[in-house]
Nucleic acid binder design. Sequence first.
DNA 1: GTTGTAATGTTACAACATTACATTATTTTC
DNA 2: GAAAATAATGTAATGTTGTAACATTACAAC
Lengths: 157, 157
Amino acid sequence: MKHILNKNTQEVLQAAQKQCQQQGLRFTTKRSNVLQLMLNENKSLSAYDIMAEYKTQYNQSISAVSVYRMLDFLIHAQFVHKLISSSQYIVCSHITCHHAHEIPQLLICDTCHQVEEISIGKLLASELEANIAASGFKLQRQQLELHGVCISCQNLH
Amino acid sequence: MKHILNKNTQEVLQAAQKQCQQQGLRFTTKRSNVLQLMLNENKSLSAYDIMAEYKTQYNQSISAVSVYRMLDFLIHAQFVHKLISSSQYIVCSHITCHHAHEIPQLLICDTCHQVEEISIGKLLASELEANIAASGFKLQRQQLELHGVCISCQNLH
DNA sequence: GTTGTAATGTTACAACATTACATTATTTTC
DNA sequence: GAAAATAATGTAATGTTGTAACATTACAAC
């Protein structure tokens, strides 16, 4: 299944703001700045990367704790994914989409840190779940993170 | 597919020793101790857990650095898996098996830290790979980590 | 404007991991 | 078997990621 992906940063920011309004969440300047910063970088970033970039781009110091809190907010609002496997953070590719979010399957390039987000097909998802249910196991986090090298980095050598 | 799983600790240790001999790897006392310790605990452990357990079980202090080095060794020898998502380590369930290792699918219980290792079916694996190959992405780490609650912990409430 | 709640700041620290260099143990070579 | 080479382990310092506890500031509701 192919989705319409994020267009420009402004559009995504406006969509985010609108969604927050509708849900009664505060889309503060700093939260918006962090999201904007992450949209500009086209790759996953650590919390400390974000802290440094914030300082650079907005000429204002921000503490690590604040970054983590803003990331928590953005994750709960479903604007950002945490990559557990690399302790990094990336904007969700589907902020401007309106369909329900499926199990995200994240292809993480270990060379350039770009992340491609594809949704796992319904069939595949149900097979995986059946495979798991056989053990009586109850899934919590539904997110597949797969590490490798993206097509651009393969071509570089 | 169901495999014969590890039997008792002694048997696994002997199998490990034999495999090291065949490959010219040194299965030192401390490496063996660490593996034994991990076999005794029926759950995943952090490097610092292992350090503490080592002290308790062998009445000898060992540094974090050494633990990490021994874990590296055990991982390369394919005796141990690293759970990226929780920064913990667990003995591979297939040390005494002789078939080629398939993509491990690890069901990690977030309550008791027990890990069930099931091998992903060939069909499912090829579907996943096809899904990924469509993006030109080249997989590196082939390990699926799935978090949830195991059947025993569900029954406890 | 006062008050209550949410957001952010500050400080301290916990947990996980690596680097650099020293020392010890084992193997190899002669 | 002694010297040299290599592998394993020890020690100290530090880097990275993340959280806890509490203070302060900003904003919304009344």
